[in-house]
Design a protein around this nucleic acid. Structure first.
Lengths: 231, 231
DNA sequence: AGCAATAGTGTAAGAAATACACCTTATATT
DNA sequence: AATATAAGGTGTATTTCTTACACTATTGCT
C-alpha cells in the first residue's frame, strides 16, 4: 500500500460530565482549574487525549487524575468543535457523561494532577461560570439523560445500592423537573419488574421507615432488550 | 491571560452516512476511493476537517465534494477513535448521518474532487467491503435511526414529498426489518395527526391508486415538543 | 367480462395510563 | 401514656392505547 499523506496525529480533548444525586438535587462534578487557559475557573474534568490511548480509555484516565474517581463507566455524548471554543486554536472535545452513586464516593475527591486544584459537586441549578463551552456541554448532557431515562432504567445508577421508592421517585422528579403521582409511579416501577424488594428497612429516620429495594440487573437484561414501543 | 501550552490544531476527519429509501430497500451512499489509503475501495464520504470551519460545516462541504449533494441536514452520530482505525496514525473521525429523499437526487451524483472516483447508492443488506471502520460506523447509524424513528417522525425525510401510506409502512418495515399490520399502522399514523391527506392520487400504477399524503411539519412541531412517555 | 393487484376499512378484547384520598406506622414531644 | 408529625403504603374506576384479525373496493390489463 502506498501513501502520499504524511503521518498524522489527532490533537483533541475529552471532557467528563459526571452527574450525582443527593438531597433531592441533581449535581454535577466540577474541577477548579489550576492552569491556563481559564486558570482559577470552574470547569469539567477534561484534558488532552494521548496518541496511544482510545478515547474511552482517555476519559477514564482523565477523570481519575482530575477527581480521583475510578472505574466509572462513561458514555460518549457528543463532540464539540466550535471554532472559538478553545482559546489556543480550534481544539475539538469529545464529551462523555456518567451517572453516579454519590454517597460514599463523596469524601475522597483528590486530584492527582497539578492542572487541577480541587474537585467538587455543584447543584445543577446553581452552577458557577464555567470555562470553555462547558456550560453548553452540561446542558446537552441533561437533555441526553432526560431522553435516556425515559426508555431505559439508568436512573438506578444515581441511587445508593439500596434505596426506597420515594428516593427513586424524587430522582425522576429531579431529572424531569416535574411532580409525579406516588401511586402511579410505584405501580409502573413495580410492573417493570426490575426491582427487588429487600427484607430491610430504612434506618435513622424519625418517621415510619420505608422498605428498601435493589435494582435487579439480571431481570433488567432479560426485559429491556427491545426498547422500542412503536409497533 | 497567560499560557504555557503551544498553539494547537486538531487533525481529524468527518464522515457522512447518508441513508436513502427506494424499491422497498434502505440504501446507503458510498464513494469509490481514488486515493490512498484504501485506494479503489468503497467507503463513506469523508475527509479532513479544515482548521477554520466547524465540524457541521465540514461535513456539508465534504459531502458536496464527494457526491455533489448539497443542502443536506446531517446530525452528529458518534466519534470514532480506535487506535488502528486509520493506517496513518490515530485519526479520529466524527460521523454524521442524514436521511434523504432518494428519487430526484439519484441522477446527479458527481464528485468534484479527485480523491473520489464515483458515488453510488448501495443496498444496506448487500454492502461491499469497506475502508477503515466504515462498516462499523454504518451499523451504529442504523441502530441510531431505529431508535430515533420510534419517537420522532424523521422517517418522512426518506420519502418523496407526496407518499402513500403503504410506502410509509414499507419504510418502517425496512428500518425495523419487521412486518407491520396495515390497519394498525394506519390507525396509529393518522392518530399522530402529522399527515395531511391530499386530493391527489398515485399515478402510473396498474391497480387501484392510493391516496397521497404529505408530512405536516407545522402540526408536528406543535405535538412533538415533549416526546417523553414515562409519566 | 373477468383477473390481478393493491387500497381501504371496523370491531372487540385486553393492557396500560391516569386521576384521585385515606389509613398505617415509626418516632418525637408533652 | 397520649398526642402530634411526617412519611409510608395501598385500590379502583375511567379512559386511552394496543393488538389481532378478514373482507370489500377500485383500477388496469387482457
Amino acid at each position: 500500500m502506498q501513501s502520499n499523506l504524511p503521518h498524522l496525529q489527532s490533537i483533541f480533548t475529552a471532557d467528563c460530565v459526571i452527574f450525582g444525586f443527593n438531597e433531592g438535587e441533581l449535581k454535577v462534578l466540577l474541577i477548579e482549574r489550576n492552569e491556563y487557559p481559564f486558570k482559577d475557573w470552574w470547569g469539567l474534568p477534561g484534558f488532552f487525549v494521548e496518541h496511544n490511548e482510545t478515547i474511552d480509555d482517555a476519559v477514564k484516565r482523565i477523570l481519575l487524575e482530575h477527581t480521583g474517581l475510578k472505574g466509572i463507566y462513561m458514555e460518549q455524548l457528543y463532540t464539540f468543535g466550535d471554532l472559538k471554543r478553545h482559546p489556543q486554536g480550534r481544539i475539538i472535545t469529545v464529551a462523555y457523561y456518567a451517572m453516579l452513586r454519590l454517597e460514599a464516593v463523596n469524601l475522597n475527591l483528590k486530584p492527582s494532577t497539578n492542572y487541577v486544584r480541587k474537585a467538587q459537586w455543584h447543584p445543577l441549578n446553581n452552577l458557577p461560570e464555567l470555562a470553555f463551552d462547558h456550560r453548553n456541554i452540561i446542558e446537552k448532557s441533561i437533555e441526553k439523560i432526560r431522553r435516556k431515562v425515559s426508555h431505559s432504567p439508568i436512573a438506578f445508577e444515581l441511587l445508593p445500592e439500596k434505596f426506597t421508592l420515594t428516593q427513586l421517585q424524587q430522582l425522576y422528579e429531579a431529572i424531569w423537573d416535574k411532580k409525579l403521582d406516588k401511586r402511579n409511579f410505584r405501580k409502573k416501577m413495580l410492573k417493570y419488574n426490575v426491582l427487588k424488594e429487600l427484607d430491610e428497612k430504612q434506618k435513622g429516620v424519625s418517621y415510619r421507615a420505608a422498605k428498601l429495594y435493589k435494582f435487579d440487573k439480571r431481570k433488567y437484561n432479560k426485559i429491556f432488550k427491545n426498547e422500542l414501543n412503536f409497533s
